[in-house]
Design a protein around this nucleic acid. Structure first.
Lengths: 402, 402
DNA sequence: TGACTTAGTTCGAGACGTGATTTAACCTGT
DNA sequence: ACAGGTTAAATCACGTCTCGAACTAAGTCA
């Protein structure tokens, strides 16, 4: 009903090995004594399991702690060079592939532009296949697997199928298609989820066990972490924060409904709203090559005085309000420990809008959950999605303990 | 980091015993063969563990299946008479106590009106204490514990403290206060959560493992079930569905913010909006003794033609729209398997409004999650909260397996 | 009555975790 | 240099667990 596995003594061993490995992975070099403390296992068992892990080559000794009269403790750490992983960020405008060591230290990277601007399924498959071949060619250790973050809902049935309403993917069987090009284990998940995973492991979510990550890019998504694990709905499509309705009969959203948050706060929406506002104000529009530049220009315009600046400011003010309301909804409904804003547009907008956003949240959220939440920027840069994707094979390793 | 326990072989046994017990509890009388299938354990272990449970008196034999040529299978079932539990629903206007057997069959009940209509803390404590004494006096089996559903946020620190903004409780240390009057194990939780628990075990949530239960009463709350267990935020105050913002700068809510869902869809809000609409339309207002009657009258008025009927209909139409939008938000953001509408106001409104609500949800939700969700009424009556509260001690027994 | 079939129990083997004991490694002071 | 003290890690003996196989129990069918 709830948890599978863990029936016989062998599973028990696996679970304990996983527990130790996890502790070592996340809490740096530790001595066996520390592990006894942290896991509650007996010293005999820790010795035993550690011997296993040393044999397997997953863990190595890492010096010793200075003695204070007795035998010094030997430190242990995960051997981050014993495996490598590949993480892929399939974005709406480019595909980024990175190769990491087991500790998620970056070893190599590759940026592939998507031709024509539209995310053609065939093009994506061949691009990923080519990138994988190139990146895995000069790996110095066995590749544990490939994690892929995609812009859409991922269903495992049992092979990953992607529904990307915004990029025109309808039940795109990505895993099966890639199977033709690689034998590596594939782990496919929503990009917002992988970003959240990266922030939870190495960024703004460290040491929290419940958080909500908002991904503001062209559109707006989210990923909910509850009790340290991503919350997936019944069909793993939870987290569609951008399609919360915040205004009945409001702006038309690209999903077809009216009044979605995404119709106000995604980069695409901000740019569209600015174009309208500028026209109304009789100010000049923005002329930019891509969305990132357009957003930068809007932010710059808002610094100016005059009608153009007023128009930009009013657009940004409303953006802050809508984001704030969207966050207040999340705070009230899910009561997370932290709310983290990420995604390229979020990272561009939030530094300017954060004070306003916080104020709007305060006005719209219930006192108790609001007082127990923090609202901050993501700590990882633009490669958080790829890095988070790479955590997927690593997470599997940590769970299996082998 | 995640799960405690389950370190040594003894814990393993406990877990397996719990697994079997749970299976027997929820899936009726089963033979040992069925249990082998269901749990994946070997026949030897099943025999072994079943012998334990038989010895402990938790499980008894329940006849045999007709043979088809071989030795007949002996059926086993949980002995529902070996323990009793008490469930308490602390409502805004009355306290209901019920005594159940282990299978949640009702054995006795007690309704205590709350004097003066306000939920005075002292009065609640003494009422519960008196009710407990009366109910436990003629129990035929040992009492496993007492579950209490309360109108507010419950924090365990480590003794349950209740924050009931709507009933004027501010950090009410209910558990400690009751400790003075009883030695029985106490389990205190939010009333919406216990109702959801009851529906999950015996009602509209059976066989689902993710669902959202909407509790429409005077106000509007919710309880989220994910992977079979209630989702609690970082401080157990998740589920404040009523305070999702659905209209920027909308109606004033009693929480102080503007545009909360609760300002449109709770019974209190519906009645207030109808009063305004009737006045505008020049129709007669509603004159009722309490909210339940008022709501009934509004529903009846909507059947009439003429301005009064038009006014009532428009109020109900908007109610359906707001509920629908609120559900669409839940569907998009959490992707539940089922959405269940409960609470006295929900049970009164939904039969009439459900078609409209479903249509609004369809318009506002993303296609994929919408197509995989059902929206229905709760299957349990008004005692769902008390019954759900009673499940809490039972759940503890099932988890411990002893 | 006896062959056959299926259910449930018993038994020996293998694996695990634990506490106690032993061995290892280092420090201090003489 | 060396003994005595101290702490870390490995080993051992024991009890518990699950499992597969062998065995017993309880029916059916001809």
């Amino acid at each position: 009903m709830t948890d599978e596995g863990r029936r016989n003594v062998r599973d028990l061993r696996r679970a304990n090995r996983a527990r130790l490995l996890r502790q070592l992975y996340f809490h740096g070099p530790l001595s066996r004594q520390d592990l006894i403390q942290a896991t509650g296992l007996s010293s005999a068992s820790v010795s035993n399991v550690v011997a296993d892990l040393l044999d397997a080559g997953l863990v190595v000794e890492a010096g010793a702690v200075e003695s204070e009269g007795g035998r010094p403790r030997i430190l242990l750490r995960v051997d981050t060079s014993c495996f490598e992983v590949i993480g892929i960020d399939v974005g709406e405008t480019r595909i980024r592939l990175e190769r990491f060591d087991l500790g998620l230290g970056e070893l190599a990277a590759l940026d592939l532009p998507v031709v024509g601007g539209s995310l053609d399924q065939e093009a994506v498959v061949t691009a990923i296949a080519a990138g994988l071949a190139e990146l895995s060619a000069d790996a110095a250790a066995p590749l544990l697997g490939v994690g892929i973050g995609v812009p859409g809902i991922v269903q495992h049935q049992p092979y990953a199928v992607v529904h990307g309403q915004t990029v025109g993917w309808d039940a795109f069987p990505l895993e099966e298609r890639l199977r033709e090009h690689t034998a590596l284990p594939l782990f496919i998940d929503n990009g917002a989820t992988t970003m959240a995973q990266a922030e939870m492991w190495f960024g703004a979510g460290r040491d929290a066990d419940s958080a909500v990550f908002l991904l503001l890019g062209s559109g707006a998504g989210a990923s909910v972490i509850a009790d340290g694990a991503p919350f997936r709905g019944s069909t793993t499509s939870a987290g569609e924060w951008g399609h919360l309705n915040v205004q009945y009969q409001g702006r038309l959203c690209r999903c077809g409904a009216r009044g979605c948050l995404e119709a106000y706060v995604g980069a695409e929406a901000v740019i569209a709203r600015h174009a309208e506002a500028a026209q109304t104000a009789g100010a000049a529009g923005i002329d930019a090559a891509d969305e990132e530049e357009a957003l930068r220009l809007i932010l710059a315009t808002a610094e100016q005085s005059g009608p153009a600046g007023d128009a930009a400011r009013s657009v940004l003010d409303e953006t802050a309000v809508r984001i704030g309301v969207g966050i207040a909804n999340v705070v009230n409904f899910l009561n997370p420990q932290r709310v983290i804003i990420g995604g390229w547009a979020g990272l561009a907008l939030a530094p300017v809008l954060l004070p306003q956003i916080r104020e709007v949240v305060r006005e719209h959220a219930l006192r108790l959950p609001y007082s127990l939440t923090s609202i901050d920027l993501g700590a990882l840069g633009a490669d958080a999605v790829a890095r988070g994707a790479a955590t997927l094979p690593v997470a599997r390793l940590l769970e299996a303990g082998a």
